[in-house]
Structures are given as structure tokens and as C-alpha cells.
Design a binder for these strands. Sequence first.
DNA 1: AATCATCTTTACAAAATCTTTATATTAACG
DNA 2: CGTTAATATAAAGATTTTGTAAAGATGATT
Lengths: 225, 225
Amino acid sequence: MNNVTVLIIDDEAPIRKLLTITLESNEYKVSQAATAHEGLMAAANHPPHIILLDLGLPDESGHDLLIKLRQWYTNPIIILSAQSTEHDIVKALDNGANDYLVKPFRTGELLARLRSVVRTSVNNDESPIINCNDLQLNFGTRTVTKNNIAVKLTATEYNLLALLIKNEGKVLTHHYLLKQIWGPSYLSQSQYLRVFIAQLRKKIEVDANKPLHIITESGVGYRFI
Amino acid sequence: MNNVTVLIIDDEAPIRKLLTITLESNEYKVSQAATAHEGLMAAANHPPHIILLDLGLPDESGHDLLIKLRQWYTNPIIILSAQSTEHDIVKALDNGANDYLVKPFRTGELLARLRSVVRTSVNNDESPIINCNDLQLNFGTRTVTKNNIAVKLTATEYNLLALLIKNEGKVLTHHYLLKQIWGPSYLSQSQYLRVFIAQLRKKIEVDANKPLHIITESGVGYRFI
DNA sequence: AATCATCTTTACAAAATCTTTATATTAACG
DNA sequence: CGTTAATATAAAGATTTTGTAAAGATGATT
């Protein structure tokens, strides 16, 4: 469940193979390129979270590719290179590389350095907040506000509301809701659903008798708007 | 003018001297510490933009100091160590180090790696002190005050409070809290949590019966406001 | 060995939540 | 329009979860 994508740009097939196996067994999604040109295209078409770049490419200097990438690509780039001269390392880092590993590198160290750059740069992306008119649900903090006033929900109420909101517009059947919230052995307890929907409406609707958010689809289920 | 502050934590005076000269001639502002304790205090009192940390300190393992620093310090930490085993490198990186250089290191490379971490970390001048109304928590010194009066907390109580405060607003599940504070083998000991939450409330809340800071989310966990 | 602070466990009280029941209201359909 | 099925609501009860005090255990320090 890592979901971090890595693009390997290296001309040596055995190294690509080794890296791919290593990374995939650590739940990274891997794509490959064997030349600078291929790498640039791949990065542009499907920007990965991280690029592993070999400096010794056949068609173009890795340094030049790095410079080209850095004109628009802001995610981490880690250099993997047989060159271990200070000149090469300094040049690569100053051209925007986030790290530089000398081949042959140790697998564990590579993975640790990957985790390090992922930690510092990849994770700051999403704000898991959903707004619906007066209503706001924050998945990160597990809070609900109505007109900026906190609404106190029980765990079950929150789960039910979150499920409805995540499927905004869709009708969720009684069957489905019961299964998701209470589990597969509660499929016949449709009274639960009525009780909890009523409680939710009391808490989040302006007028619980004329619900604007939680809509009843008689005979089928409920829908959130 | 660079204006970037660097704290060197290293017990060997000659290395501190060499680093200081190197860094100052590149317009960094340098401060020094010769022991883990000194380093922790220095970092807490005047949080630097970057910490250069030697793992071989006399009074405490550099790894342990790294862990303590990372409880509140979010700026880059670069390890300088004579140890070059993969185990050490991986451990340090996973404990939150941003880079790891093996001594003896090349000056140009160190400077390039410094430039690299400066470039990527937006220098958010973050204080190691968190204020919440009447409550103040100092991550550097591990102390808590309520209306400027020191509150005496045990290690476990402090850890629990610090974890809650670091995730202010978020609900932390019982599962998560137990795992973080007591370790993965204590996941079923939810009574611990109740006892320690009660103790914390007695110490930091104005009225422990009506907690304003540590909020119970029944069936889920606790939240700090 | 005695002391002290802290952690762990136990027992019970209090509170919150869930479940069930009863009954009212609304929608579907001929 | 009236009947039937589905849905809504309130409130009582049962159950689970949480809070608290206090006793026992541990382990470091003297």
C-alpha cells in the first residue's frame, strides 16, 4: 500500500532488473527507461514521485539530463553513479539532485535513503476535507462542522456520514450500508439504519423533517447531496 | 549573505574547528556542542536551520540523540560519522536523518550536500515550544508549564501528552497511542491509556471532570485541542 | 533493607453509546 | 382515496466504553 512511483533511468538492463525487483518487493510502483531521451519522455508523461538516475547514459550526459529535468520536475531525484569523484558529486547535487549514491550501492541503504526523501517531500500533498454548503467533514482530524460549529458525532454516526459523503450523489443501498458500517452479520438490521440516519439528520440538517443532505430513496437506500 | 545557522554536535575539537572554519568561510553561522546533552540544549534554545551530528558522542549514543531531536526538530539533520556500516546508515536515516556522510568526508561534498538540504527544506522557523492557552510544552527540555507554573510529569505522561499535542486537533486512536507510547505488544492494554489520560487531566486540566484539552472520542480514541 | 517514584493491575462507578420496542409518519400503488 | 409497506422518531433498556481511586508490583537509589 505504498503507492509511491519510481522511475529508473539506467542503461544497464541487469541493474534496472535488480532495482525493479528490490523496489517492487518494497511496494514501490516502478517504471524504467534505458536512455536519457526515454527517461525524459517517461518523466514528462507520467511524473513519478521519485527518479533514480544513472549518470552514465549512452545518448546524453546524465548531468545534462538532470539539468533538463530540474527545469520543471520538483520531486526528489537520487543519483546512482559509478563515478565517485567529488567533482561529479558536487556537480550533481548543485544541479538539483537530492542524493547521490555510488555504485555498487547497498540495497538497504538505497531503500533507507528512498524512505528519507519520501518522508521529507512526497507526503505533503492532500488536504482531506470535504465541503458541502454549510457542512464540512475533515477526514484527517475526524471532525464535522456545520456553519463552522463543531458537531459531535459518535463513532458509528461519523462512519455512516463519512461513507455517505464519500459517495456523494450515489444511492447507497441498505444492504451496502449495513455491511460496511456494522458488518456482514447485520444485513437484516435495517432498523439500525433508520435510527442512525434520524440521529444524523437531527445533528447535521437545518430542518430534520426536510432533509437537504441525507435523502431517502424509498425501498432502495440513502443518498448524500 | 547566507544567514543559515548550523549547529555542530561533535566531541572532537579539531573536527569542530575544521568544520567551523569551512562553514564560516561559506557564510554559515556556526554554533557548537561537544556532548549530546549540550547539543540538545543548544538546539532547543536556539533552533538552527541545520544540525550536523556526529554519532560517536561521549555521554549518549548519537542515535538516541537523533531520536530525541526528531521528536520536535523538523529541520535537516546531517549525520557525520566514522561508522560506515549499512546498519548504522539505515538506522540513522530511518530515525529521521536527512543525509549521512562517512568520515573522513570531502569538504566540497559536505558543502554541496548542505546546499542540497537547504534548497529542499523551506526554512520554517519553528519553535520547540508549543503554547495552548494556559499550557506550554517545551520539546527541547521536555518540560510542561501551566500558567507558567511547572507541571511535574512522569516520562510516560510526558510522552503521551507530547504525542497528543504534536497531533493537535487529530483523533489519535487507542491502537495508535498504545503502539507509539508502550509499543506494539501493548495494543490490548487500553486500561493503561485510561489511567494515564486521567492522570494527565488531573495535572493539566483546570477541571479534570470537564476536560478542555484532552477530549475523549468514545470508541475511537483521544484528541488534544 | 528501606524508600521513593512510577508503572501495572484490580474493582467499581459513571457516562456514553448501542439496541430494542413502540408508535407515528410518510411513500407507493392500485 | 385508502390500504399497505416502508420509513421516522422518541424513549426505555441493555451494553459497552470510559473514568477514578487505590492497592500491589517493580525497580532504581540510598
